Computed example of a mutant assay.
Amino acid sequence: MDKIIVSPSKYVQGENAIAAIAGYVKPYGQNPMVIADDFVSGLVGETVAHSFIEAKMQFSMELFGGECSRQEIDRLQVKIDNDHNDVIIGIGGGKTLDTAKAIGFYKKIPVVVVPTIASTDAPTSALAVLYTPTGQFDQYLMIPTNPTMVIMDTTIIAKAPVRLLVAGMGDALSTYFEARANAASGKATMAGGAPTLSAQALAKLCYETLLADGFKAKIAVENNLPSKAVMNIIEANTYLSGIGFESSGLAAAHAIHNGLTKLEEAHHLFHGEKVAFGTLVQLALENAPLEEINTVLNFCHQVGLPTNLFDLGVKEIDLNKLMDVAIASCAEGETIHNMPFTVTPEAVVSAILTAHTLGLKK
């Protein structure tokens, strides 16, 4: 199996980076279309427009409708055809960014994504999640190339609710452990090959950065302030975790997350919050050393990530419901089968209860 690493062509991160967006985009096209929802447009629309006007570049700005759906993608493609745009820029949350990725894929034009939060590692990936116009899951769109460029404006991200940054840490927390398991099993990664040494190194650096700077970054963002720790965590949540998961592989933690969607009590949680608990379950599943599990638990307690079923919203432990979670986690095609041993639903239930019990102790 060939070793493969994938990544955006360029990653830009800095304070007020969005004010210089025209200069970053100009090498890729002269007539970009910018999509953003109403809130984000009010937040950064004037700054973005000023940047393009100063650079004497033609541009279009369109309001994003709210769902990354076929209908919204088609609507915006018509606008691009009419305005002859040669670059698509998505600014905002995941659905806006995924819409930009999909449009870039269908129109064969460069894609620039500008996240306004750092709650997941999805911005750097070659994947878009499509929904129906009413918000129901439709399909995954697997895109053959990663975004042309990712721009992270740390000033904007530091002012977002702290829970979003912490959720991003939860998503990033799994990266090293899933990469480690995937390497041990020898299974193919999402990039379609074996992990490279560099991808595995980025996954490990992601974990080390979380432990070193996660709590400090949380303190800064609670006060709407940037800091070196915030800069490091934004990079860990987005770039290190993004390259780490896509090119080093997923395993049990994300499959457990998918299983946890069966619990109605946990529907209020963000993706990364459920992934954090899934990471603890994976560690229990592989019988990791207690010292390692305690390190992860301590980190979760520090930043406020869930460590037990009660934190997820569960009121009473129901083994039948946990078996439903475990069965969904072990469904055919799930990434739990990238673990270096056979995993059964019974083993998953046992690991969930172990992680829950360990996570109760603070």
Rank of each mutant, 00 (worst) to 15 (best):
I4A: 07
V6Q: 15
P8V: 00
Y11M: 10
Q13E: 11
G14Y: 05
A17M: 14
A17L: 13
P27V: 00
Q30Y: 12
P32C: 02
I35W: 05
I35C: 03
D37S: 09
F39G: 04
V40N: 01
S41E: 14
G45L: 04
E54G: 13
F59N: 09
F59T: 11
E62G: 12
F64W: 08
C68N: 04
S69Q: 06
S69D: 05
I73D: 08
R75P: 14
L76R: 12
K79Y: 14
I80M: 13
D83G: 00
N85A: 03
I91F: 07
G94P: 01
D98H: 08
T99N: 10
K101T: 10
A102K: 11
I103Q: 09
G104N: 02
F105P: 13
K108T: 15
V113G: 05
V113F: 04
P115K: 09
T116G: 02
T116Q: 00
A118I: 04
A118S: 14
Q136A: 15
F137G: 00
D138L: 11
Y140L: 10
M142N: 14
M142Y: 15
N146L: 05
T148G: 10
M149H: 04
T154N: 05
I157N: 04
R163T: 00
R163V: 02
L164K: 03
L164D: 01
G168F: 06
G168R: 01
M169F: 05
M169I: 00
A172G: 00
A172N: 03
Y176M: 03
N182H: 09
G192A: 08
P195L: 06
A201S: 15
A217Y: 01
V221E: 03
N223H: 15
N224Q: 15
M231P: 02
N232K: 10
I234F: 01
E235S: 05
N237L: 01
L240C: 09
G242T: 02
I243Y: 02
G244Y: 15
L250W: 07
A253P: 01
H254L: 08
H254N: 02
A255Y: 09
I256V: 06
L260E: 06
K262T: 13
L280G: 05
L285Q: 10
E286L: 11
N287G: 10
P289H: 14
E291M: 11
I293S: 06
N294Y: 13
V296G: 07
F299N: 03
F299M: 06
C300K: 00
H301C: 06
Q302T: 10
N308C: 11
N308F: 13
F310D: 11
G313W: 10
K315Y: 06
E316G: 12
K321D: 13
M323V: 12
D324P: 14
S329H: 12
S329G: 12
G333P: 02
G333Y: 01
E334V: 11
P340I: 12
E346K: 12
A355M: 03
L358Q: 13
L360C: 13
K362C: 12
